[in-house]
Design a protein around this nucleic acid. Structure first.
Lengths: 255, 255
DNA sequence: CCGTACAATATGTACGGACATATTGCAACC
DNA sequence: GGTTGCAATATGTCCGTACATATTGTACGG
């Protein structure tokens, strides 16, 4: 566990990198070492340890308190990422009651999506379609396709009571940790309009998402979201990076 | 310039705050002091100076290089912020040629918008409407309202050749440094569809923006953006905050 | 068993010193 | 005027010391 002092990379950077790997490997799930322990383990000064941890903690992944020590911030691991997280997070923080109504849960064949998931075109997929509501008002139609070889146990899950990612982790031992999303405006189909209680002529957001677990694509998802109940809002200020979040209470911002 | 050692706030935090104020006041536009100078000026150790600067520089506002010193990062000041910046930035980085066609430039009265700008309902406004194109293909319709008492000189500006914020700063001495934006999906009007060369049934993004300069609202803007040429794309990875950017080349992401 | 006091634990703040590294400026030489 | 070498300048890295502050654990007394 000694760092390479002939490496041009500073000691703190090497230490940060090592700690990151150990952290990602789950080595600190139970307990994170104290500054003093790291000093001993790595043979560097406390200053160097603190520098490394300071950089590692840029993303807020650790919580450090005097007298208490350092703990891995659990919410980081539990966080489904991206706009969907932002959306449902904002619904939750608004105090609204969230509900899902399962519209479909079955085995499916879809060559296009199978290809997206790097599967054979005829590979069986688990298809889950839900109507997402906040305060009993429809908010979004959520459609997810997962490789059946990973997700078969979910055919018997109750998605009106549990979250997809929680079930995926508990019953299949898989959790997404990377991916991408894109968002476009869309005119919903008549069926969608009915489900979402939208009027003709109203547009929606169409969100597509590919989730990846340890380098492997495990979910393709589309979400059609009412545009009148979901806005992106961004505040900006000079010298501070803009933060773009989803808001599920657009009325908040009516002037 | 001595810090208050009886204040419970750590010295580095007081120093950071003081430097921030001086920086915002433009005191470091010509030159930022060296570590050594700050040690002398504030009567603290270099460690404390570096700690304060480290925190101040979280937003990347400074550039520090060995042998060279510390410079205020100029690009921070020149950056129009938010999704619009992201959009036109991404058009520019794609190598596409941007053009604006001025559709309207006149004095206007609009009580709703005047109120948004914290003006009397009948206050005169400068109204600027442009068609924004990339590679001679329409991309967005941009509408901006500014208080006439600030922006009157712009009635004679040539907005096909210059950017609104540049003109605003050069001719009116004002530059936005805060504000907010929100984005919703929208079905464009027939006139808008014609301008943007969109088909019936295609949806667009509708962006609203309030820009503020030194606490005063100085611009209300709406931008209607073709949804087929503009997507939000987000990559995410565990432990790293998601970054949401606008993309003006959606074809890039077709799987 | 509960409350209080103190010790142990662990991070935060602040000082000082030394050396490495990169850039710029200046002087000397051709 | 251009090039080279060295000194000055300025930040980065790393070490060490000391004390403050907050939390947790333990022992003792009522």
């Amino acid at each position: 566990m000694a760092l390479d002092r002939s490496n041009p990379l500073p000691l703190w950077a090497q230490l940060e990198s090592d700690l990151k790997q150990r952290l990602d490997a789950g080595e600190f799930d139970e307990r994170f070492p104290t500054d003093h322990e790291l000093v001993q383990q790595y043979g560097v000064s406390r200053h160097t340890v603190r520098e490394a941890i300071g950089h590692l903690n840029r993303s807020g992944i650790l919580r450090r308190e005097r007298g208490r020590g350092t703990v891995v911030n659990r919410t980081e691991f539990e966080q489904p990422l991206g706009a969907l997280y932002s959306l449902f997070g904002s619904v939750e923080s608004s105090g609204a009651v969230q509900r899902s109504q399962v519209l479909e849960l079955r085995e499916d064949i879809n060559p296009t999506i199978a290809t997206q998931l790097e599967l054979a075109p005829d590979a069986p997929l688990l298809y889950l379609e839900r109507l997402r509501c906040a305060d009993d008002q429809p908010l979004a139609i959520d459609r997810a396709w997962l490789p059946m070889e990973v997700a078969r146990p979910l055919l018997t899950s109750d998605f009106e009571r549990t979250a997809l990612y929680d079930e995926l982790e508990q019953r299949c031992g898989v959790r997404p940790n990377a991916g991408w999303e894109r968002i476009a405006p869309l005119l919903p189909t008549p069926e969608e309009r009915t489900l979402l209680d939208m009027r003709r002529g109203e547009a929606a957001f169409f969100l597509e998402r590919l989730s990846v677990a340890d380098g492997r694509p495990i979910e393709w998802r589309t979400t059609t979201i009412r545009g009148d109940r979901y806005r992106f809002v961004s505040k900006f200020e000079q010298g501070v990076a803009p933060a773009m979040v989803a808001s599920a209470n657009p009325a908040t911002h009516n002037a």
